[in-house]
Amino acid sequence: MTLRPRIGVVVEWLPPLVVFALVVGLWEGLVRALHVQQFLLPKPSTIISVFWTQRHVLWPAGWYTFKEALGGFAIGSGAGVVAATVVGRFRTAGQALMPIFIAANAVPIIAFAPIFGAWFNPIQPQSKMAIAAVLCFLPVMVNTLRGLQSARPRQVELMRSYAASELEIWRRVRVPTALPFLFTALKVASVLSMIGAIVGEYFGGAMNALGVTINTDAQIFQFDAAWAGILVASLLGIALYSAVVVAERLVVRWSPEARVS
């Protein structure tokens, strides 16, 4: 009995670990064997050792940028949910506004990053939060709205048969239906917020921000340090993404994917 779950854990974790070992091993081996210059691609072992020796610079820089991303994620996603709620409440308004949101979603917002730097003081974290927030807003808003509108008609009808008010239908049917849609969007937004913050920093930011650090390192050909910074950024992005996944498992417990016994 006690063996079962352990086997499950092994089956779930073994393949990614094997892939990880293979890829890192291959990378290290190839870089060594082919004598790849380190400005092209440093060895994983070098990256890890710099990741450790430079921890007093890199980790606080990562934390600084992570806070910007987190702030943008919270503001953008929150605004997206609020906007979707408002628009979803007024159907005609929603239908009229939907093409705007779809078009806005197709705009490469990243191109506007320098303007946010000009609007807010580029040294202040607000400018990065603003980019991250705008990047997060649209996917969250569009997906949540779609979720709120995709309740099955019969489920709504049954609530009507209980004389449920619109508010109650919203709370008991539309919101639960929208939750999986919301989490899909939040996963996208978690990655976007980190990218937004780093791209924002590319156009100028505080000296102790991760994006600035990576950029400076690359310019002075300290590629091992740049890669270590990239590693920090990825780890933080993965952390935020994983947090959303965990939250999803906790909240959307009913779905077949959650697979709770």
Binding site: R152, R154, Q155, E157, L158, S161, R172, V173, P176, L179, V252, W254, S255
Partner: peptide, 11 residues
């Protein structure tokens, strides 16, 4: 009311 198909709330 009972509908022709079972209308249950997945959550």
């Amino acid at each position: 009311i009972v509908f022709q198909e079972a209308v249950l709330y997945d959550w």
